[in-house]
Amino acid sequence: MAGQFEIFTDAESKVRFRLLAADGTVLAVSTAFDDKRQAANGIMAVRECAGTGLIREARSNPWTGQRGSRNASPVRHHNRHLPAV
């Protein structure tokens, strides 16, 4: 069985969707939308780009979890795209 999208209303009365795996595991939760139509459009956008989206590695500082600091030397981020598996 394939995964599914589920539209729901959050605690702030905003509409969101989540992507569920076949076993019910939550794989992703969307940003907040004003209404169901906008959430449905968001689902369509995810469907369109998910199959062709590239994978990019985002590097962060393992000590702080942040992407560098003001006092740190500049870090060059390489936009490596990893192949889909």
Rank of each mutant, 00 (worst) to 15 (best):
Q4S: 14
Q4I: 12
Q4K: 15
F5D: 04
F5G: 00
F5E: 06
F5N: 01
F5L: 04
F5K: 07
E6W: 02
E6S: 11
E6H: 14
I7A: 01
I7R: 03
I7N: 03
I7P: 02
F8C: 06
F8E: 05
T9Y: 04
T9F: 03
T9S: 15
T9N: 06
T9C: 12
D10C: 06
D10E: 01
D10G: 10
D10R: 02
D10N: 12
A11G: 10
A11L: 15
A11Q: 14
A11I: 13
E12P: 07
E12S: 10
E12T: 08
E12W: 10
S13R: 15
S13C: 10
S13G: 11
S13A: 12
K14R: 12
K14V: 02
K14W: 07
K14E: 11
K14S: 12
K14C: 11
V15H: 02
V15Y: 03
V15W: 03
R16T: 04
R16A: 08
R16E: 04
R16V: 00
R16Q: 13
F17Y: 09
F17I: 08
F17K: 00
F17M: 05
R18W: 02
R18V: 09
R18D: 02
R18S: 05
R18I: 01
L19P: 06
L19I: 10
L20M: 01
L20I: 01
L20N: 05
L20D: 00
L20Q: 01
L20F: 03
A21V: 00
A21M: 02
A21S: 07
A21L: 03
A21N: 04
A22I: 02
A22H: 08
A22V: 05
A22D: 09
A22S: 05
D23T: 03
D23G: 11
D23P: 06
D23A: 13
G24N: 04
G24M: 06
G24Y: 02
G24E: 06
T25E: 10
T25Q: 12
T25M: 14
T25D: 07
T25P: 07
V26Y: 05
V26H: 08
V26C: 04
L27N: 09
L27V: 00
L27Y: 01
L27F: 02
L27D: 02
A28T: 10
A28S: 14
A28F: 13
V29D: 05
V29P: 12
V29A: 08
V29M: 11
V29C: 02
S30Y: 02
S30H: 06
S30V: 05
T31R: 11
T31L: 06
T31P: 10
A32P: 13
A32K: 15
A32S: 15
A32E: 12
A32C: 14
F33I: 05
F33N: 03
F33W: 14
F33Q: 08
